[in-house]
Structure formats: C-alpha cells, structure tokens
Simulated scan of single mutants.
Amino acid sequence: MFKKTFTTIDRFFKHLEEWSLFLTVCIALFTAMANVILRKATSDLSLYWSDEVVRKVIFFSTYMGCVAAIRHRSLIRIDALPQMFPALKRPLTLLSNISILIFSAVMVYLGWSMTTMMYGDEYARTATLQIPEYLFYAILPLTGAMMFLRTAINICDDWSAASTRGRD
C-alpha cells in the first residue's frame, strides 16, 4: 500500500521539480538575455526589473533543487568513511536522513511563520514588480514538506532494500 502511494507522490514530485525548474530557469535566462541585448543594442533601453526576476528564480531553484537532490541522493554527506569502513554506511545514511528530516521540519515551521508574517504586511512587495513577498516565502514550507516526503520515501526504499537483502 505504501509503495503505490510513494510511487504516485514520487512521480508527481518529479514532474513538479523538473518542469518548475525548467520553466523558471528559462524565464530567468530569457529575461537576462533580453536585458543584455537591449543594453548593448540600444543606449537607453533596459529591463529595470530583470535583476529582480533572476534573483527570485535563483531563490526558487535553490530550494527546489534541494528537493531534486534528495531524489537523486546527491545532497552533501559523509561518503569517505563508508568507503573506508563499509559497516558505517547504514548508520551514517540514517544520520544523514534524520538530519534532513529535522532540517525540513524546521524549514516548514519557520517558512510558514515567515509566510504568514509577510501575508499580514500589505507593504511587503518586491521592489520593482510589486509582487507580494509572501508568494516567495511560501516556497519555503512547500519545499520543506517536499524534502520531508522525499526523505521519507528514501528511508522506506532503504528499509525495503535491506529487508529484501535479508531474505536472500
């Protein structure tokens, strides 16, 4: 039962991660390119808001990239010790997963607090585009929850792989 649910969540998150990263990076790339072309081709035209768009895309892609890194098991971790001492692989992987779970839970809590704080402030808007800041702060609890679920899926995959090896 859990396997089917986790597979569905995994598939949904994978599409969300890949397409949102693709679209936001394309937006930043085209905005920055258009701004550079306008500045070089003309002397007086410039997209004054392009820097803000690129900054917000970097903010988004950093956190969504963390979720994708968890899927690929590519987050920073101690990997020299398990290579020298294979018996440490499972405990260090468990420690790494627990650390991610704690970090993502804190990220959800603090991100939600900051999002609601920004939502209550009617003047909290981006400098040039005047987009409400709470929309950007909402990325924190969203990606924190995704990180938590991705890590839980990885833990379950590790346990099922270990139990399968135990039966052999």
Rank of each mutant, 00 (worst) to 15 (best):
91 P>R: 09
126 T>V: 07
80 A>G: 14
44 D>C: 08
97 N>E: 13
139 I>W: 04
133 E>V: 15
150 R>G: 00
36 V>N: 07
156 C>Y: 15
115 T>K: 00
116 T>P: 01
84 M>Q: 09
78 I>H: 14
144 G>F: 02
133 E>A: 14
43 S>I: 10
40 K>R: 08
32 A>R: 11
143 T>S: 04
86 P>L: 13
76 I>A: 15
108 V>G: 02
107 M>C: 06
110 L>W: 06
130 Q>T: 09
148 F>K: 01
130 Q>M: 12
126 T>A: 08
79 D>N: 10
74 S>Q: 11
94 L>N: 14
142 L>Q: 00
53 V>L: 11
94 L>R: 15
133 E>Q: 13
68 A>G: 06
101 L>R: 11
103 F>H: 03
104 S>C: 13
63 Y>H: 09
102 I>R: 11
141 P>D: 05
129 L>S: 12
95 L>R: 09
73 R>S: 14
96 S>W: 06
63 Y>I: 03
115 T>V: 02
63 Y>S: 06
32 A>H: 11
156 C>R: 12
137 Y>V: 01
44 D>V: 12
43 S>L: 12
98 I>W: 07
141 P>T: 00
151 T>F: 10
93 T>E: 15
71 R>D: 04
118 M>I: 09
113 S>V: 04
141 P>N: 03
103 F>N: 06
66 C>G: 07
101 L>K: 11
83 Q>K: 15
104 S>A: 15
76 I>H: 10
144 G>Y: 00
53 V>E: 12
68 A>N: 08
36 V>F: 08
42 T>V: 09
135 L>E: 05
103 F>R: 03
109 Y>K: 09
121 D>V: 12
146 M>F: 09
87 A>Y: 09
84 M>F: 09
48 Y>N: 10
107 M>I: 01
144 G>S: 05
123 Y>M: 06
63 Y>D: 10
90 R>P: 07
108 V>R: 00
88 L>W: 05
35 N>I: 05
150 R>L: 05
67 V>Q: 05
91 P>G: 10
71 R>G: 00
48 Y>P: 02
105 A>K: 00
118 M>V: 08
131 I>P: 00
156 C>S: 15
103 F>K: 03
43 S>P: 04
86 P>A: 12
152 A>N: 12
45 L>C: 10
64 M>S: 03
133 E>Y: 09
32 A>Y: 12
126 T>Y: 04
80 A>I: 14
87 A>F: 09
143 T>C: 06
134 Y>D: 01
112 W>K: 00
106 V>W: 12
116 T>W: 05
58 I>N: 15
63 Y>C: 07
74 S>C: 07
90 R>C: 10
147 M>H: 02
38 L>C: 06
89 K>M: 12
56 K>D: 07
132 P>V: 14
136 F>V: 07
57 V>G: 02
78 I>D: 14
138 A>S: 09
150 R>C: 03
